[in-house]
Amino acid sequence: MSLVIKRYIPLVITFLMGIIMVIATYFFAPGTPARDATALLTGSVDILVVMAGVIGLIVLIRHHSVNISKRGRFWKYSIFTIIGVILYLIIGLYGVATHPQHLMYASDLFAWVYNNIYVSMDMTIFSLLAFFIASAAYRAFRLRSLEASILLIVGALMLLGRAPVGGAIWEGLPTIATWLLNVPNTAGNRAITIGIAIGAILLAIRQLMGIERGYLGPEQQ
């Protein structure tokens, strides 16, 4: 593939799309044909995303099939992955096939699997976070330096102040926690957010101008 197609055309498309979206956001009033046309442009991303989802599914199945056939590392886990993907896909498609007028129909079986297997597993994984927080707090919260000590004290005040036990120990603790949230947290949050916004705008500028192009394809042929 020539360098023009692989390198320069994507840069031109990137630049044009970026400029069009900025103009559309600021100058095309909602509801006008010009704005609707750009909405169509962003809407087309959904098509791309759906196609990428299909590719993701194929890649997933291919990766694990190859792993099973080669008896690769932990290939037994791959069997579970493939069974899970195919089984739930069939259940989902069956629901849609039996109710063609309702594109997002969830059959009773689909809902049962979702509510009793997926929901339980998802909640379990999220709740494991409590254990990770406990072990992270245990090993990482140390009075190493002034900054670490401030972090530790503020963390402890928040922990106590944001649970009923804080109020039971001393009524002032929830007030302190609320103040920490309302004042120092808001200040720090705003500073970081402003920095991030400026950084993101300049990153976009570098990309639109083709200066920073690490995300594009190979530079050499």
Partner: peptide
């Protein structure tokens, strides 16, 4: 509440 106190004790 208990979980928060336990985490503080761990710390």
């Amino acid at each position: 509440s208990v979980a928060h106190v336990i985490v503080i004790l761990f710390i």
